[in-house]
Design a binder for these strands. Structure first.
Length: 219
DNA sequence: CGGTCGATGATT
DNA sequence: ATCATCGACCGC
């Protein structure tokens, strides 16, 4: 049994002023927000549990650090739009453009906690895009509009605690590789990457069947 | 640890 | 125009 999304999404949309702030703040504040994809009539949704901040022209891991190109142009525009790029010829990665026009920063969405049933995994930036059918055609899309929307739903339970770490896969970026610009919900089972060692169970019967605190259906 | 191919920058 | 390089990943 699915609970309906509120009829008026309007009041849950994030205003442009949310995005046009310092990127680290936006990254942290995106944790817990809902990403909603309207894919040919099907609604797919999840809560953001892992992100990375990319801090613009001086950040050697940020695509905009090597100037404005066709690919990175959207990052130089206003906040609140999608920047989707292809990586390794096979995967897409979804970013949210932050900061005012002229400051080419973004937040990479790395993992969601599913709300309701999804047709695939949403842990990891590539899998997330594959499951939600996100590709470069959505670059420049305004995230306050269908078919890809970011929402603040205050009635959802809070997620905590927030932890940070260096970003994944940017070892080439010199001193910027070590900065703790990855934000995630500590211990959340949907966060991507190797899981922390699991505590030993006294008996196999104590083992849980799956992720705890499964969220309510969302449709 | 290697697949796989688009974006980029150098070069013609 | 073509060529070489390499990657904000995933799955084995």
């Amino acid at each position: 049994m699915e609970t309906p999304l509120p009829l008026l999404l309007e009041e849950f949309l994030l205003p442009r002023t949310f995005y046009e702030r310092p990127t680290e703040e936006v990254a942290r504040d995106l944790l817990g927000k809902v990403l909603l994809r309207d894919d040919r009539g099907k609604r797919l949704a999840g809560r953001i549990v892992e992100v990375e901040a990319y801090l613009g022209a001086h950040d050697l891991a940020c695509h905009s650090a090597r100037g404005k190109t066709t690919r990175t142009e959207v990052m130089f525009g206003p906040g609140g739009r999608a920047y989707v790029y292809m990586i390794y010829g096979m995967y897409h990665c979804l970013n949210v453009v932050t900061e005012p026009e002229g400051s080419p920063c973004a937040v990479l969405i790395r993992a969601l906690e599913p709300l309701g049933d999804l047709p695939g995994a949403v842990s990891g930036p590539g899998r997330l895009c594959r499951t939600l059918s996100v590709d470069r055609s959505l670059t420049g899309h305004d995230l306050s509009q269908s078919p890809l929307t970011l929402l603040n739903i205050p009635s959802l339970p809070a997620l905590s605690p927030i932890a940070r770490s260096p970003r994944i896969g940017v070892g080439y970026a010199g001193e910027w590789a070590d900065k703790p610009l990855r934000f995630f919900i500590d211990g959340n089972p949907w966060v991507s990457g190797p899981k922390p060692p699991r505590k030993r169970r006294l008996s196999p019967a104590d083992a849980p069947a799956g992720p705890q605190n499964s969220p309510p259906p969302f449709q």
